[in-house]
Design a protein around this nucleic acid. Structure first.
Length: 453
RNA sequence: GGCUGAGUGGCAGAGUGGUCAUGCAGCGGAUUGCAAAUCCGUCUACGCCGGUUCGAUUCCGACCUCAGCCUCCA
């Protein structure tokens, strides 16, 4: 298995700390709003990565945190007039609902900041004891980046580069511009007692503290969206290494960014599309396949055309399994499994893996019907990617309708009567009328079925 | 300005030093009352300029263009 390690910038052979076991920590999200398709991309990518480890018989310990104490949450809670933890609880529920809709499996652990204040304080204390943390004039507690020689090694930047950056805002209490807050002495919204007074954790420290608690001071994989690489992950590494004097995570993985119709999607641009919105239009597996059609490290441009294309590809798989003469007793084809694993073992090359499945289905259909029972391995692989879990009938009817289902049935009956009477003009009018509503009719042997286009 | 990555056919998107990516779309045909699905056939490619090589889309160098990060972000 080869994985691209962001820390070294190279594809490396993956060597877990314990044979056939993987410890993996993924930075989850800050719950203060509905999740958007950028989140969907990242967590679907890691879902597939974790599923593949399991597929190849690794024992996986997957931790994905929730940052439920944060300035944005506090601000939003104030606006809504509710408590900080009530607000985050609400959006955690929404997140679970949306993840579940997308077929994202639960992690083994899902730690929250508010439940780990003691661990966080202990880590800051340890940093302070070792001389890596400081406070001035009753300021927040800062991490002293100049005390840590390797600062910037993940994101390839030096302290000089950071302090010469154009967007720096001077904070007089800091020793260096890149110093970041470990403990905020701010009691607004939510706070806990600490050796540095009432306050709350800064951003970054929670992930170092929680990953170490659940996976140990050294573990296999740490990942998240590319936008977390700097400063979040850089700071996590600095804190964790300085506090423990150990190596922290050995492999760092970052998923590529998502753009919307060729424009960057970001919180500040407010141009994000929520998962709920997209699921009104597209089946969750179409969304999933759309993301898997691009390698996890490459940027994706979200577009309706892209989703439609993914739908066509997934339709093909569902159609193949929907043949009337197909046996339910599928047999296995080890050569397909082998080809699939080969593609995935090369840094989780899902586009290549899916290409293999697409060609396979075409070749099998071209030969003989007997071969169709070889679909067993294909089904197994699709399922392991989180695809082909639905019933074909549900799949093809998924999405908002502009017309009642019973009305469709009535029109189908009317059309079939017209066909019996050879009134093809009327029959075609009905077909056209339904098509305008996004309904496609198919005349199969003895019956007519409908689908969403 | 700094760091990182990318430029492939109408579109999406892999990959490789010398026969095909693949899929969608298009075009022609089979099939169908018409469709859908399926099948057969078919077209379009590797940013620009040099270098290495018997041969480069693939390796090396320059150039151009684009994107991400350097602010909140998955």
């Amino acid at each position: 298995m080869k994985i691209f390690n962001s820390l070294t910038g190279k594809k490396e052979t993956f060597k877990p700390k314990v044979k056939n076991q993987v410890s993996i920590y993924i930075c989850g999200l800050t719950p203060y709003d509905d999740i958007h398709i950028g989140h969907a991309r990242t967590f679907i990518n890691f879902d597939v990565i974790v599923r593949f480890f399991k597929f190849t018989k690794y024992k996986v310990n997957y931790v994905r945190n929730i940052t439920d104490v944060d300035d944005k949450i506090i601000l939003r809670a104030k606006e809504d007039g509710i408590s900080v933890l009530d607000l985050s609880k609400k959006y955690i529920e929404e997140m679970h609902h949306d993840f579940s809709s997308l077929g994202i499996e639960d992690p083994d652990q899902e730690p929250k900041v508010s439940d780990h204040i003691n661990e966080i304080i202990a880590m800051i204390k340890s940093l302070e004891d070792k001389g890596y943390a400081y406070t001035k004039n009753d300021s927040d507690v800062y991490f002293d980046v100049q005390k840590y020689d390797d600062y910037g090694s993940l994101s390839n930047r030096s302290l000089d580069q950071i302090s010469s950056s154009e967007r720096i805002i001077k904070d007089l209490n800091k020793n260096h511009e890149a110093d970041f807050v470990l403990w905020k002495t701010n009691t607004d919204g939510i706070s806990w007692p600490s050796p540095w007074g009432e306050g709350r954790p800064g951003w970054h420290i929670e992930c170092s503290a929680m990953s170490i608690k659940y996976l140990g001071e050294e573990f296999d994989i740490h990942g998240g969206g590319l936008d977390l690489k700097f400063p979040h992950h850089e700071n996590e590494i600095a804190q964790a290494k300085c506090a423990t004097q150990k190596n922290f995570a050995s492999t760092w993985m970052h998923t590529g960014p998502l753009r919307i119709e060729d424009e960057k999607m970001s919180k500040s641009l407010k141009n994000f599309i929520t998962v709920k919105e997209i699921l009104n239009k597209f089946h969750p597996e179409v969304v999933r396949l759309f993301f898997l059609l691009t390698h996890y490290r490459n940027p994706i441009s979200y577009s309706n055309d892209g989703l439609s294309n993914a739908k066509k590809i997934l339709d093909r798989f569902y159609l193949a399994f929907n043949k009337k003469n197909i046996s339910k007793e599928f047999s296995e084809d080890n050569s397909l499994i082998k080809d699939y694993e080969l593609a995935m073992k090369d840094d989780f090359n899902t586009p290549k893996a899916i290409k293999i499945l697409q060609s396979y289905i075409g070749n099998l259909e071209k030969t003989s019907d007997d071969n169709l029972n070889k679909f067993g391995s294909l089904k197994k692989i699709l399922n392991s990617l989180g695809l082909f879990k639905d019933e074909p009938e549900n799949y093809f009817k998924y999405g908002d309708l502009d017309i009642q289902e019973n009305e469709i049935e009535l029109l189908i009956n009317e059309r079939n009567r017209a066909r019996e009477n050879k009134d093809f003009g009327l029959a075609d009018d009905i077909r056209t009328k339904l098509k305008a509503k996004g309904i496609v009719l198919e005349d199969l042997e003895g019956k007519t079925v409908w689908k969403k286009s």
